[in-house]
């Protein structure tokens, strides 16, 4: 019987009891400092897809950045989300819905700007009221492609976070060289000869390199799933979300 190496990512593996960030947020609705911190962390992680979404909406870089900051400031200031049923949604779909809502408000706001309206979109403040809520998904089929691009950027942001975390893990173990040499194999198997070269360079046997690559991939997968789990509601399946995001990349990337 061989015990696998202890895995740093394991602590946050879904299925454990530690609540993920998004479940914290959903549960507490901004009532606790913990949930506010969790929401803030989440927003920081996925700032980029939002900025790009706004960029795609026709804003220039600066405007998009400003708007993104304004948007997040609004979300964080509220703390609570205004989501009636926490069990339903992913953080990803929530955020996209909220951004769209925010944009809608911006437009309305611009329309009555001359009358000197307030700065913060009012309707978002109310929780559980009859006003429009940034619920799970704004059903607007015409924007399907924009949504897909948002999800693509989301996948990229997620992937970047996981890759960086992976690099950081290896760095903290003093194995930067191994990481640097093997990272290219995260895409899958490439030409065999280069792997032999890596083996000689690292002073390992071929089979050890093969196993090391396998473990690198596994670690990456675990980190990725743990990252995803942070954005899932209770009982969410990280594999389903991962599968979806991979599919989005295949679909949108080639489009």
């Amino acid at each position: 019987m061989r015990e696998p190496e202890s895995n740093p990512a394991k602590a946050s593996t879904p299925g454990g009891f530690a609540p993920t960030r998004w479940t914290l947020v959903l549960r507490a609705q901004g009532a606790t400092a913990e949930s506010r911190a969790a929401l803030s962390d989440l927003c920081a992680s996925y700032y980029e897809p939002v900025r790009r979404f706004l960029r795609r909406e026709g804003r220039d870089d600066d405007a998009a950045r400003e708007l993104a900051q304004e948007f997040f400031a609004g979300v964080l200031a509220r703390g609570g989300l205004g989501v009636a049923d926490p069990g339903k949604g992913l953080f990803r779909t929530y955020l996209l819905g909220a951004v769209k809502h925010f944009l809608l408000d911006q437009r309305k706001h611009a329309a009555r700007a001359k009358r000197g309206g307030g700065h913060v979109p009012e309707s978002l403040d109310a929780v559980g009221e009859d006003v429009e809520e940034p619920t799970i998904q704004v059903a607007d089929t015409s924007e399907g492609m924009g949504d897909a691009w948002f999800d693509r950027d989301w996948a990229l942001a997620l992937m970047a976070r996981a890759l960086d975390a992976l690099a950081e893990q290896f760095r903290s173990e003093g194995k930067e060289a191994i990481h640097a040499a093997l990272e290219p194999w995260l895409v899958g198997d490439v030409a065999g000869t280069t792997q032999m070269e890596v083996a000689t360079r690292l002073g390992m046997t071929e089979s050890a390199v093969k196993v090391a690559i396998h473990r690198l991939r596994k670690r990456f997968r675990e980190i990725l799933r743990a990252e995803i789990a942070q954005t899932l509601p209770e009982g969410g399946d990280p594999d389903a979300e991962l599968g979806y995001l991979a599919e989005v990349l295949v679909r949108v990337g080639r489009g």
């Binding site: 996948a155 990229l156 992937m159 970047a160 890759l163 960086d164 690099a167 990272e183 290219p184 995260l186 895409v187 899958g188 991939r217 990456f220 997968r221 990725l224 799933r225 594999d239 991962l242 599968g243 995001l245 991979a246 990349l249 295949v250 990337g253």
Partner: peptide
């Protein structure tokens, strides 16, 4: 991210 093909990395990471 990190110059790696996102499709292959993410598809490779799906557990199936």
């Amino acid at each position: 991210p990190r110059g790696l093909c996102p499709r292959c990395v993410m598809v490779g990471a799906t557990s199936g």
